[in-house]
Simulated scan of single mutants.
Amino acid sequence: MTTRRHPHRLLPVALALGLLGACTLPPAAAAATKLPAPLLDAPPTSTHGEQVAVFAGGCFWGVQAVFEHVRGVRRTWAGYSGGSAASAHYDRVSEGDTGHAESVKVLFDPAQVSYGQLLQVFFSVATDPTELDRQGPDSGTQYRSVIFYATPEQQRIAGAYLAQLGRARVYAAPIVTQLVPLRAFYPAEGWHQDYASQHPDDPYIAINDAPKLASLRQWFPALYTR
């Protein structure tokens, strides 16, 4: 069962905050912490190009918003990964039984930002990797935390970083983020794309995702871009 919101049923921000309680932090903000950089990363390159990374870490609105503000990211898409094309539709995915996870496709320039740096941002800012089949206020397998690796190199780097974080015991609970091959990515419906930047006053965005952007700006000033 999911607590997912509908975009046309919006409460005023003040009312939404009141319902949560004046001193209640959004779950993602409460769990966020800047993590160490990966010990294993792609070698530096001065050659500009384009590579693809796909991450799932809860509602794709917030994950997309984070990566849209990372230097070297050329474009992002909200969408679905993990299931079939036939079920890659919001109404079906929201039922939680399609195998899809709400995901974000990131097109980045490896000469400006490395895959390891994207992983560091993902785990520090965009997701809580200890939450199983949920993220913050949203529950269901469609909100699980996943790294969909596109190449063997991405698999090695992501696997090593998961092991590194596990050894460092940076979380009080076990990391449940999945590491699986990218089979396909299906862009979500148009109204989902760039939702956070287009609807900054949506209470869901203000409460759950604005703190993520604040953390990105504070912890990664060299990577943050408007």
Rank of each mutant, 00 (worst) to 15 (best):
R4L: 15
H6C: 07
H8P: 00
P12R: 03
P12S: 08
L17V: 03
G18A: 07
L19G: 02
L20W: 14
G21I: 09
A22K: 15
A22L: 15
L25S: 12
L35I: 13
D41L: 12
T47P: 02
T47A: 12
H48Q: 11
H48M: 02
V52E: 11
V54R: 11
A56R: 08
G58T: 02
G58D: 05
F60L: 03
W61R: 11
H69R: 15
R71F: 01
R71Q: 11
G72R: 15
G72E: 07
T76S: 14
T76P: 10
W77K: 14
G79C: 02
G79W: 00
Y80L: 00
G82A: 04
S84H: 01
A86P: 05
D91Y: 00
R92D: 00
G96L: 03
G96I: 00
D97L: 08
G99T: 00
V104G: 09
V106H: 09
F108H: 07
L118I: 08
L119V: 04
V121Y: 09
F123E: 13
S124T: 06
A126D: 08
A126H: 02
P129N: 05
T130N: 08
E131D: 03
L132G: 08
D133C: 13
Q142P: 08
R144G: 10
S145H: 05
S145M: 07
V146Y: 00
Y149D: 07
T151P: 05
P152S: 05
P152R: 05
Q154M: 01
Q155V: 02
A158C: 07
G166Q: 15
V176T: 15
T177H: 06
P181H: 11
L182Q: 10
A184K: 07
Y186D: 00
Y186H: 06
P187V: 03
A188N: 09
G190A: 13
G190P: 04
W191I: 11
Q193S: 08
Q193W: 10
A196N: 11
A196L: 13
P200I: 05
D201C: 06
D202K: 06
Y204C: 09
I205E: 08
I207W: 08
I207A: 06
N208I: 05
A210E: 04
A210V: 11
K212D: 10
S215P: 02
L216S: 12
Q218A: 15
W219F: 12
W219L: 09
F220L: 09
F220I: 06
A222I: 03
